[in-house]
Design a protein around this nucleic acid. Structure first.
Lengths: 187, 187
DNA sequence: CGCCGAGTTGAACTGAATCAAGAAACGTGG
DNA sequence: CCACGTTTCTTGATTCAGTTCAACTCGGCG
């Protein structure tokens, strides 16, 4: 839990009061490998901070499995659309390794936001950051070739390549498995 | 100004205290058509709410002018990356029509965020919304054809098509002017 | 041992880009 | 208000990155 609180605290200072309230609202979960922790059609009730392990967020498009996001240690993952709208999720979260997660429920988060301005600030900053990374991703998809995107991922998160099947990587990069295979073979 | 405050208030309730502080921090600007209001290399010091008019946010990529975003009445526009990081902006904002804008400076916004929890909440909700729309845009670029994206824009913002040169529309959709012209001619 | 999912490789196809040239609209000055 | 140059838009021919379809390889595991 300290890991998560530290993570938040670095973003913007939290009072002791906030931190102690926060600790009381957090739940830890342990999941085995290849478990679905958010099903399609289910409302996403938690945001998860990854203490240990690796997960992915994905959805189906024409029956094809498309990875949207990978979360490793020190990342947050959730079905954001569903979580904030409290509507059924199109997207699915599954573990790709055994995971220890620190979770906060929607109700608790709302309550804490209400009560603690400093926490809401952290939330605001995280959201702006998420916006900016989506922007970068959009840019990469628009202007960088499949090869470039692969190399950027390789530079940014070399570990993911080791820990995840190539099919997931390919759809995350917005290319087919076949293209990814060709990219890897050349050079 | 009331337009802007109303816009914010709908997102989440603001106290009278917040509102009166807010009014004192807002500035209104009038710009003629085709004026640059954020230059490349300049730090973006304001977020603008469009009371009247039309603007675009764009940047250069290989010497080509790429439109990132259009803002019409009741939209917010700014060089977000630059604004929040307070670093020089890659991106440029220019008016495409004569505009009345309501602006808030970075310093004022920070001050207000500090003082008013309810306003920071509005900021948080706006940021999550911005994230979600980027997500949709990414999805469209990845999976929808040029034609589909054009038709979606047409459905969503028919007025923009009337008010903006096609070249800007094309780069916003992530296609060339040439392709857009072909799409429009068929059907 | 044989099956099965994951990855590779080859051949054909396609949406959109690029290159290039012409037509239409626009505005600025004489 | 017309003439000229400039920008905007259209149209045609060609090219290319990446997809699709399909067959094949490989390593693991019941």
């Amino acid at each position: 839990m300290d890991n998560f609180i530290n993570y938040l605290q670095v973003i913007s200072k939290l009072s002791d009061d906030t931190k102690s309230d926060l600790v009381n609202c957090l739940t830890t979960f342990e999941f085995a490998k290849n478990k679905t922790i958010l099903k399609q059609g289910q409302v996403c009730n938690y945001l998860y901070f990854v203490d240990k392990g690796l997960l992915r967020l994905f959805y189906y498009r024409d029956g094809k499995d498309i990875t949207d996001y990978f979360a490793t240690e020190q990342n947050i993952i959730g079905g954001i659309d569903s979580f904030f709208s409290q509507k059924p999720s199109e997207k699915i979260i599954e573990t790709l390794e055994a995971c220890s997660l620190i979770a906060i429920s929607f109700d608790n988060l709302e309550k804490l936001y209400q009560k603690h301005h400093d926490l809401e600030r952290v939330g605001r900053i995280l959201s702006v950051g998420a916006f900016l990374s989506m922007q970068e991703r959009l840019f990469a998809i628009q202007f960088h070739s499949a090869k470039q995107r692969y190399q950027e991922l390789l530079a940014r998160s070399p570990d993911i390549l080791q820990r995840v099947p190539l099919g997931h990587i390919a759809s995350y990069l917005g290319i087919t498995q076949v293209t990814l295979s060709r990219i890897r073979s050349q050079k």
